[in-house]
């Protein structure tokens, strides 16, 4: 009997294919990098991750070390990346603020090492013939939202500003093409973060957009690394952060806008006013990667909002979660420590 008790865990380990990773190596064979992905399931994304992916910046950085880059793009976006972290399938990933916070509050052993984007724009679209002119009028209506993503948190905060909560509307979990199909079929009254190509085609109009909102209301994302990977390969993490900062710097230069829009357009979100919309942002602010006080306070306020509204069950101390060491070192090495203050 004792023999069986000893054998059983080993057998289960073998059956489940658990990989025992050697702790003696000073560099990994592979870096498992999660990108935000998109609801359409295409291997493209926008923002800093989009530039890194399109220009193969990580591959170029680690080619001389023989480190392979394993890229993951999930149609399930942020919530899916949290699951991948929990399953031990990822070392590092950049994704939206809401799943960032939900994952950490749920017990994922991660460190927040960089800001991805500050204040991305989002919108609520309604039917062209709709009489709805304000967010308040959404009360009682059916709204398509990709639940668990940053768009849901953005919408929840916009509702609160307008005197409503998620309980006052019928929030349906729909993303990407499902939301578009349901909207066009007339099954829902509005879509949060809806496709602007629908607006171009005259199939929708914009009810609300966040361009003029204060930063506190807007969506953001962050780069997370697992505790284990950061402890084991701190130099590698610093180099990854460096690549991210280089991409952020490139994005902050207005002359790169046209090329960036070509990159982000690969996700399928092409629309005619993309450039006009993008240039409403202060690019230097938008792509500031620094984990400064404003960034930490912003995430803390969102984490507190999530706790107060029951999205997370544990309070989150963002100051303890954030690790500025990699970004500050990388900024210094790149001579950009005074570019973003």
């Amino acid at each position: 009997m004792m023999k069986w008790i000893k054998i059983l865990p080993v057998a289960v380990l073998l059956l489940m294919g658990v990989t025992v990773v050697s702790h003696a190596e000073d560099k990994p064979k592979v870096i498992r990098y999660g990108f935000n992905g998109n609801g359409l399931g295409r291997p493209f994304t926008g923002g800093v991750g989009g530039v890194i992916n399109d220009k193969n910046l990580l591959e170029k950085e680690f080619a001389k070390d023989g480190i392979r880059i394993e890229k993951t793009f999930l149609a399930s976006t942020g919530p899916g990346l949290n699951e991948a972290f929990a399953s031990g399938l990822l070392d590092i990933a950049g994704f939206g603020d809401f799943p960032n916070i939900v994952g950490r509050a749920g017990g994922l052993k991660t460190r927040w090492i960089l800001v991805g984007v500050r204040g991305d724009n989002s919108r609520i679209i309604v039917h062209p013939e709709s009489n709805i002119t304000s967010v308040k009028q959404l009360k009682g209506l059916r709204i398509g939202v990709a639940k668990g993503t940053w768009a849901q948190l953005w919408f929840a905060k916009i509702l609160v500003v307008n005197g409503l909560t998620e309980k006052d509307v019928k929030v349906l979990n729909l993303k990407g093409s499902d939301a578009t199909a349901a909207f066009v079929a007339g099954s829902i009254d509005a879509v949060v973060g809806g496709s602007l190509s629908l607006v171009d085609q005259g199939l929708a109009k914009i009810l609300y957009e966040s361009n003029k909102d204060p930063q506190s209301l807007r969506g953001r994302d962050g780069l997370l690394v697992t505790e284990a990977f950061a402890q084991k390969y701190p130099d590698i993490v610093k180099r990854i952060v460096k690549v991210n900062i280089q991409a952020a710097y490139w994005l902050s230069q207005p002359q790169n806008t046209a090329e960036y829009l070509r990159i982000s357009g690969k996700t399928g979100g092409v629309y005619k006013d993309a450039k006009k919309d993008y240039l409403t942002h202060d690019l230097k602010v938008k792509w500031n990667p620094r984990l400064d006080k404003e960034a930490i306070d912003h995430y803390q306020a969102k984490a507190d909002f999530c706790y107060a509204n029951g999205y997370i069950r544990n309070k989150l101390d963002v100051e303890k979660w954030a690790d500025k060491s990699f970004s500050e070192a990388a900024l210094k090495e790149l001579g950009l420590e005074n570019y973003w203050k």
């Binding site: 699951e83 929990a86 939900v102 749920g106 668990g148 929030v171 979990n173």
Partner: peptide
């Protein structure tokens, strides 16, 4: 597109990790 039900509860639980 559900608002309630056990399937909805499970999906929502998954989204919130």
């Amino acid at each position: 597109g559900s608002e309630d039900g056990l399937g909805y509860m499970m999906t929502w639980g998954r989204q919130l990790f």
